[in-house]
């Protein structure tokens, strides 16, 4: 069997769903905390086109995960609406595959069983499931690990399994919350390339949360920078460089400088807020 996503291999073997278009309209999210409220998101408007690869960038605590969780349907917003291809998000569903920083693989299932889980829920037949799992194992270079338990895999391998597990259901949208945040830089780069290849081949709409400016420039069509408390959209920047992107290119560095400025402003607001919280206590 040929691997599906190496650049010269035919990619039509995995039937891919059409990517979806996401609309976030006037979304706010408040959290009740002892002695008050935290406004995690305030009046967010964001429209992500079908097949777009968007990075959410910002310092810790600016509401990136909150926004992603709202789109995933785990925690509904306090105000506003979110639609995927015109349908309102009411709860989590397999049309929006979520990849977590902590992998969230089921440790009692082998690699193959983890990947098969969503297909079994969908009620597919054994033969069909086995074939799909075999394809995904091949695509993510996991075939030799199919019967291993997650505890025996490296972080990079675990994240490959987690990606294969959501791809099994062929979701039109991938939501990724700092998926490579815990990986060493070499593993991280190879998974970034893998993801770009999958994206190019299958045409998913991807919302990818990251702290890393370089990662966002390396991956995204579009970078959305968020402000710290309340979480709003500070900047929305198109990236039009061709892939693979060269971290040493002048264009790359100019963008990096611009983004660093934006993110550092929010980072210092974050630090001042923490200092203030300390002194008022």
């Amino acid at each position: 069997m040929t691997p599906l996503f190496v650049t010269d291999a035919p990619v039509n073997a995995l039937k891919a769903a059409l990517p979806a278009h996401i609309e976030v309209r006037g979304v706010s999210k408040m959290f009740r905390v002892p002695g008050g409220e935290v406004v995690a998101l305030k009046d967010i408007n964001l429209s992500v086109g079908a097949g777009e690869f968007v990075c959410l960038l910002g310092p810790s605590g600016c509401g990136k995960s909150t926004l992603l969780n709202a789109i995933a349907g785990f925690a509904p917003p306090t105000a506003g609406t979110i639609t995927v291809d015109g349908r309102a998000v009411k709860g989590p569903g397999p049309d929006r595959g979520m990849v977590f920083q902590e992998y969230a693989l089921f440790p009692w299932m082998t690699v193959a069983q983890n990947i098969a889980f969503g297909l079994e829920i969908k009620g597919q037949g054994r033969a069909q499931i086995n074939q799909r799992v075999a394809e995904l194992l091949e695509t993510l270079k996991l075939t030799d690990f199919r019967d291993r338990f997650p505890k025996d895999l490296s972080g990079g391998m675990r994240q490959r399994v987690a990606i294969a597990r959501v791809l099994a259901l062929d979701p039109p949208v991938l939501l990724m919350d700092e998926p490579f945040g815990a990986l060493d830089s070499l593993t991280r780069r190879s998974l970034q390339d893998e993801l770009l290849r999958i994206w190019a081949a299958l045409g998913k709409t991807i919302i990818f949360v990251t702290h890393s400016i370089e990662e966002s420039i390396y991956l995204a069509d579009r970078i959305v920078v968020m402000t710290y408390r309340p979480g709003t959209i500070k900047a929305d920047i198109q990236v039009s460089m061709a892939h693979p992107r060269d971290g040493a290119a002048p264009e790359f560095n100019a963008l990096k400088k611009q983004l660093s400025g934006l993110v550092m402003e929010e980072q210092s607001r974050h630090e001042q807020a923490e200092l203030k919280a300390l002194t008022t206590d």
Binding site: A72, P92, P94, F100, E102, F106, I121, V166
Partner: peptide, 26 residues
């Protein structure tokens, strides 16, 4: 996080109980 992952993959309450909560608690 296991419950969230399972819900994301479309698992029903019953499936989550049988295939996630039970093995996680073993």
């Amino acid at each position: 996080i296991y419950l969230r992952a399972a819900r994301n993959l479309g698992a029903s309450q019953m499936t989550i109980f049988r295939r996630v909560i039970l093995p996680a608690a073993t």
